[in-house]
Write a protein that binds this DNA or RNA. Structure first.
Lengths: 225, 225
DNA sequence: ACATTGCCTATTGTCGACAATCGATCATTG
DNA sequence: CAATGATCGATTGTCGACAATAGGCAATGT
C-alpha cells in the first residue's frame, strides 16, 4: 500500500519553480524576487529562500548577494561543458545498461525506442522531442545507478532550459531513428563498449549543434532583447 | 585585483560544517540537530538550516522529516556508484587535460606528480594521501571544465568521508608511483585515449578496494558500534 | 504478560519582523 | 556642466517565536 502523499511546502515550492523554469514559463535571465514569489506561492519568504537555494545548487538559477536571483543563461562554453559531461554520463549509463540488462529492462527499452520511432515517423515534432528525452532517461534508469541518474538529471535540466529558450534544435525527424538505433541495438545485445561509444558520439553530435546555435547568438555585439 | 573577502554567515556555516564532516571531526552516521549547531556556530537556526540543506544536496548529510539530520553513511553499493562515477569523470578530465595542455599546465602537473612520488618514497602515509588527492585534483583543474570540476568535487567529498571513517585504504606506498605514472605520462604527451583509459582503470581499481572494505564491514549481522 | 492507546517531549516546518546591503537617483559644488 | 557625495527605495541576510510532526513512554484494558 502506498503511503499518503505528504510533502513539505519547501519541496512543493522547489518543484513548482523548477517546473516553471523548465517549461520556459519563467524565461532564462528573468529576475526573481523572494517577496514576489512568496506572495504568488502563498508561502513565507523562508520557504521560497530554501527552494531558491536548492535550485541554485542544481544550477538553474544564480544569486547575486543583496541584489536578487535570476534564471541562469547558457553561454556557448556552458553548452560545451554540458554536452561533454552528458556524453560521459550517457556513455557510462549505456555501458552499465548493456551489462546488466534483463527481460524487463529489455521490454522497457524496446517500448521507449518504438515510441520514439513512431513519433518521428508521424512527423510530430513535440512528441518526438518528448520521446527522445524519455529514451535517454530510460537508458539511464536501466543502469541502476542512483548517483549517475541524479547527475544526469541535473545536466539534462540545464540543457532543457536552454533548448526551451532557443525553441528549435531537433535535427531532422527522419534521421532520429538512425541516430538512436545503434545505441539501442548495442545495449540489447550486451556489447558494452559499443553501447558506450555510440552513446558518447551521439551526445557530442547533439552538443555541437547546440553549441553552434548559441555561438551565433553570442556573436552580435548588440543585445538581443 | 582580488575583491575583498565578504562571505555570508550561511556560506561560512556551510563551509565549517563541511570541513568538520570531511575531517572526520563529525563522524558518519552522527546525528545533527539544528538548535545545537546554531548554538555552537553562534548563528540562527535559519542560517544553520540553509547550510544543512546545501550539504544535503551535496550528498554529505541526509534529512528525515521532523526527526533530524545525520551524516551519510556509505554502503558497499554506494561505494560502487561513487567509483564508477569517479572513473568516468576522471577519464573525461584526463582526456581534456591531454587535449589542451600548455606549458603552465605541464609544469603544474609535473610539480604535483613529483610531490606525490617524493612523499611516497619518504614513506609518509599522510603526506602521500594528500598528494594523491592533490594530483587528481590538478588533472581535473587542467581540464578547464567548471561543471566537471564541481561534479568531481562532490564525488570526492563523499569518498573522503568514508575513507576517513575507515581509516586506512591506501595501497602500498611503493606501488603508488607505478599507478600514477602512466596517467601523467599519457597526459603530458597528449595521448588522449590512453590518458582517459588509464585514469578510468586507476579509479576502478581503487574503487574495488574500497568496495571490498565496506563489504566485509556489512557482512556481520552484529552492529559494529 | 502483552498489545493498544493516548500523551509528551524533542525536533523540524513555517512564519513575519528587523537589520544590512546594494544600485540608482538626486542634490551639491567646483 | 561635470564630478562627487548623500539619500532613498528595493532586496536580501538574519533572527526569534509559534505551529506541526514523529517517536518514545507510560497507562490501561484484556
Amino acid at each position: 500500500m502506498d503511503a499518503v502523499l505528504k510533502r513539505s511546502a519547501e519541496a512543493q515550492a522547489t518543484e513548482i519553480l523548477r517546473e516553471q523554469i523548465l517549461t520556459g514559463h519563467i524565461r532564462t535571465g528573468a529576475r526573481l524576487t523572494e517577496v514576489r514569489l512568496a506572495a504568488e506561492l502563498k508561502v513565507s519568504r523562508a520557504t521560497v529562500r530554501t527552494a531558491l537555494h536548492q535550485l541554485t545548487v542544481e544550477g538553474l538559477i544564480v544569486q547575486t548577494p543583496y541584489t536578487g536571483w535570476s534564471v541562469m543563461t547558457l553561454t556557448a562554453r556552458d553548452a560545451w561543458e554540458l554536452y561533454t559531461l552528458r556524453a560521459s554520463l550517457e556513455g557510462l549509463a549505456a555501458r552499465l545498461a548493456a551489462r546488466s540488462l534483463n527481460a524487463a529492462g529489455r521490454a522497457e527499452l524496446d517500448r521507449a525506442f518504438n515510441r520514439l520511432s513512431s513519433a518521428s515517423l508521424r512527423g510530430s515534432w513535440a512528441k518526438t522531442t518528448t520521446a527522445d528525452f524519455a529514451l535517454h532517461k530510460t537508458i539511464v534508469q536501466l543502469a541502476g545507478h542512483q548517483r549517475l541518474a541524479e547527475q544526469y538529471r541535473l545536466v539534462e535540466q540545464q540543457v532543457r532550459v536552454s533548448i526551451g529558450s532557443i525553441n528549435a534544435l531537433m535535427s531532422d525527424l527522419s534521421t532520429i531513428i538512425d541516430q538512436h538505433k545503434p545505441i539501442v541495438d548495442a545495449i540489447l545485445s550486451g556489447r558494452e563498449d559499443e553501447a558506450a561509444s555510440c552513446s558518447e558520439a551521439h551526445s557530442i553530435t547533439e552538443g555541437e549543434r547546440l553549441h553552434a546555435h548559441l555561438s551565433v547568438r553570442e556573436k552580435p555585439s548588440l543585445s538581443a532583447d
